[in-house]
Amino acid sequence: MNKNQLKNYRMFLEVQNTLDHNNTTWSGNPKFTETKKMLDIEIDGIEILGEDASKTTKGMTRDKNLIRNALEKKLVALAGAMSVHASITQNETLKSIMITSKAAL
């Protein structure tokens, strides 16, 4: 991940951590619970892809490009979920900084 991607990934982890520590506040809302599960799945996927991307491949740039593309797709999907969360909670600051396309990465 580049510096900007890492910054966004850390933000996703902070949101996940905040939600985990305050689950009594939102756990009664089925739609929000579903979104939180999707967030956890996407973060797990990013971690797995990040580990694969950081391995030495000895010239296998094609595989690294495939992993990078998959990671970008995961980050965009996760940002979309975060944007929905920001809209629901009326958090305009969070909504304004969400990435909405691979090009923005």
Rank of each mutant, 00 (worst) to 15 (best):
residue 2 N to F: 08
residue 4 N to L: 12
residue 7 K to L: 15
residue 9 Y to T: 04
residue 14 E to T: 11
residue 18 T to K: 13
residue 18 T to N: 13
residue 18 T to Y: 12
residue 20 D to V: 06
residue 22 N to P: 06
residue 27 S to K: 15
residue 28 G to D: 01
residue 28 G to N: 12
residue 30 P to E: 05
residue 33 T to W: 01
residue 34 E to A: 02
residue 36 K to H: 02
residue 41 I to W: 04
residue 46 I to Y: 15
residue 47 E to P: 02
residue 47 E to M: 04
residue 48 I to F: 13
residue 48 I to P: 00
residue 49 L to Q: 11
residue 51 E to W: 04
residue 55 K to I: 03
residue 56 T to C: 00
residue 57 T to P: 00
residue 59 G to I: 00
residue 61 T to Y: 06
residue 61 T to E: 04
residue 62 R to H: 07
residue 67 I to L: 10
residue 68 R to I: 11
residue 69 N to S: 14
residue 71 L to E: 04
residue 71 L to Y: 14
residue 73 K to R: 12
residue 73 K to S: 15
residue 74 K to T: 07
residue 75 L to S: 14
residue 78 L to E: 12
residue 80 G to V: 03
residue 80 G to L: 04
residue 82 M to Q: 05
residue 84 V to L: 10
residue 84 V to T: 13
residue 86 A to C: 09
residue 87 S to T: 14
residue 88 I to M: 10
residue 89 T to I: 05
residue 89 T to Q: 05
residue 90 Q to R: 12
residue 91 N to V: 06
residue 91 N to G: 05
residue 93 T to H: 13
residue 94 L to Q: 08
residue 94 L to Y: 07
residue 94 L to G: 03
residue 95 K to M: 08
residue 95 K to Q: 09
residue 95 K to I: 04
residue 96 S to W: 03
residue 96 S to L: 10
residue 97 I to S: 10
residue 97 I to E: 09
residue 98 M to P: 02
residue 98 M to S: 06
residue 102 K to L: 15
residue 102 K to N: 13
residue 104 A to M: 14
